[in-house]
Design a protein around this nucleic acid. Structure first.
Lengths: 316, 316
DNA sequence: CCACATTATACTCAGTTCGAGTATATATGT
DNA sequence: ACATATATACTCGAACTGAGTATAATGTGG
């Protein structure tokens, strides 16, 4: 049962995220003529004790960059989603393990650059307003996709998915679900590259190599979710920051605007930050106090957001 | 770069969960003399388009069982955690992808059986009371583990982890974190099987083959978390059920008791269930109405539990 | 038929959190 | 001094939560 019969090569990729000002960005490797890629490489089972160590080695080589906070996202094994690599290496099947890493912005290495993630997902940024492309381009194209389904039941199923993804009540966490729907509907370039029947029409956002845009979608979705119940934002902040800076980063990640006064109340009451007594020196307006993250919360607090009822206290 | 240089074999394992009465159970394969195992097998890249299809094939063969709801959990690649298999197959490295599946209980196939999951994690069941073993066995042993650390800083770090895992404020979701701590402290059998220095003392819970107890811990943690923001419990329920039955299943999974009247209010106000007008016929007490899951909520509701503040409505 | 044990379900009530504001304070530029 | 810009404090009603009490519908043993 060993040998090449079940042999698979594991690809490790990292979505390394930082926020510059109000732009959430991801570190990409770009070579002339090729699509953007996340830093990646094959896992070497001989030399690496764990997957994460293998990842760190690749990232280090490609970006001269030392990962801080990292988190495994998902393992993708779909045939076809790696077509470019498959063509090069027809022998082995590639299974792709994606990671999320958070960091503060640093200088880029050769061939790498920080790129705003809404570049790849322009429909995900609702900070100014609902992106016009949703009603003007996406929804009509998806409606057509639903109509063209092979059976009435599938049409209904597709309508359902469209409604969940782009309908009433924007759920900012469904980033992957939306990308996958657009992929299946042939609205992103990767669909054609992976072998989907060529067609005229829109290609939304900027394509990435292999399944890297899917991994990035997973990363954004995970980060938007985690934001709400773990203090991960602070991995992206400078040691001290004003409350507005913190809010802008959260907004950038979530792709939404928040109510300033309530945001301030929330982080205060949750004990996430502590004033330093020092103040910013802004060009205009009243100076804001500089805060820092209270590391102690990592120990103290139960995860907030425990839904599904109260624990019973007495036996009754 | 292809060929056996980076070749890895992928092991697929499923924690298939059902609840019988008040006992949350997992389907295990047991052969004489061997430790319990989850249904598993290698991924065959030639014949399977996706990882999940490969998993379904193995589970079907080993349990004559058709998976319903499934979800990928995590991919483990640590060298050493698969020692038994490594010894058999020294050529290839095994990377292990774990899945969670939810189902209603069905008859077992030969060599498989449903086994209560608290069999493997007795410290995780707080429904009756805090398990006595925590204060009597676990905490003292972990204290010793902290004292025996190679440096004072590590002692402090270990104390911290012990406090988060078993200290004030039980967080029922930290199942994996607790298991990993017990593993590192040499309090579970797998530690020794994987090459940890032999030692006298306790072996908590029942060991499983390979890294299967780790996968099960991941499954329980994930399910306990998901329970709170997605209506997954209903995958485990009969088509109709009383509200108390529903509560008992949630309690069994969470390992906690809940406040009955508030639980009822919660599922009602969330619109998760709908009365059928029919009633149970209990041995004692007033009959309870039978409810069923309102499938519509899958479309309607935003995920509940959106913490981290309100979206801004106007520009201000 | 009654009391009662048992379970289901409805309702209460105070404390907390949330959404959406208004009000006030402290800067800069003119 | 005042217009503008930003920071921070405070308010207030609505909704949600935790922990009950109260009442309804069964079967059972006298």
């Amino acid at each position: 049962m060993n040998g090449p019969a079940n042999a698979v090569s594991i690809g490790l990729s990292a979505a390394i995220v930082a926020v510059e000002g109000e732009r959430p960005s991801v570190l990409v490797v770009s070579h002339e003529g090729a699509e953007d890629a996340l830093p990646f490489g094959p896992f070497d089972p001989v030399h690496h004790r764990t997957l994460e160590l293998g990842l760190r080695k690749w990232v280090g080589e490609q970006t001269r960059f030392d990962l801080g906070y990292t988190e495994q996202l998902y393992t993708f094994g779909d045939l076809g989603r790696h077509r470019t690599q498959q063509a090069r290496d027809p022998g082995t099947r590639v299974v792709s393990v994606g990671y999320l890493a958070l960091t503060r912005m640093v200088r880029e290495a050769p061939n790498t650059q920080w790129r705003g993630w809404y570049h790849y997902f322009p429909w995900e940024d609702w900070r100014d307003a609902k992106p016009a492309m949703i009603e003007q381009v996406i929804v009509p194209a998806l409606r057509k996709f639903a109509r063209d389904a092979p059976s009435p039941e599938m049409t209904e199923q597709r309508r359902e998915r469209i409604n969940i993804c782009f309908g009433e009540g924007w759920d900012e966490e469904r980033v992957l679900e939306r990308y996958e729907l657009l992929y299946e509907a042939g609205l992103v370039e990767e669909f054609y590259r992976d072998g989907g029947k060529r067609a005229e029409g829109v290609r939304l956002g900027t394509a990435m190599m292999f399944d890297h845009r899917r991994i990035l979608a997973t990363a954004i979705a995970r980060l938007r979710g985690k934001l709400k119940y773990r203090p991960v934002v602070f991995e992206l902040m400078a040691p001290t920051f004003t409350l507005l800076e913190l809010q802008r980063v959260v907004e950038a990640l979530a792709g939404l605007r928040l109510h300033k006064q309530n945001f301030r109340r929330l982080v205060n009451v949750q004990g996430l930050v502590e004033g330093t007594g020092k103040f910013s020196t802004p060009a205009r307006g009243r100076p804001a106090e500089l805060f820092h993250f209270r590391r102690e919360v990592l120990r103290e607090r139960q995860a907030p957001g425990v839904r599904l009822g109260s624990r019973r206290s007495r036996t009754a």
